[in-house]
Amino acid sequence: MDLETQIRDYIVSEFLSGEDVPDLTDDFDLIENGVVDSLGLVRLISHLSKTYAIPVDDIPLLPSNFRDIEHICAFIRQSPVAASG
């Protein structure tokens, strides 16, 4: 399963009660559309850290990294640990 699909599946199951929506494209703004709220963001970061073995402190805490599936995947790919694993 490619990374985009993995992240998409996670968002659907965690934040959309398992109900997939066609709007959820890779550049769909998860924050502006209220899919991920403040605590959701904490959960998302924790999930990415665990699943892709990126130490929490190595996750760049930049809003631009978490806006949509595309950006989330981009920073996971850039992470040295995730990229080598």
């Binding site: 403040s38 963001l41 904490v42 805490l61 930049l62 809003p63 631009s64």
Partner: peptide, 13 residues
């Protein structure tokens, strides 16, 4: 300090 919009993430940290 940090990017614009990063306040909540900094606070959590």
């Amino acid at each position: 300090v940090g990017q614009e919009g990063a306040g909540f993430l900094i606070l959590d940290h």
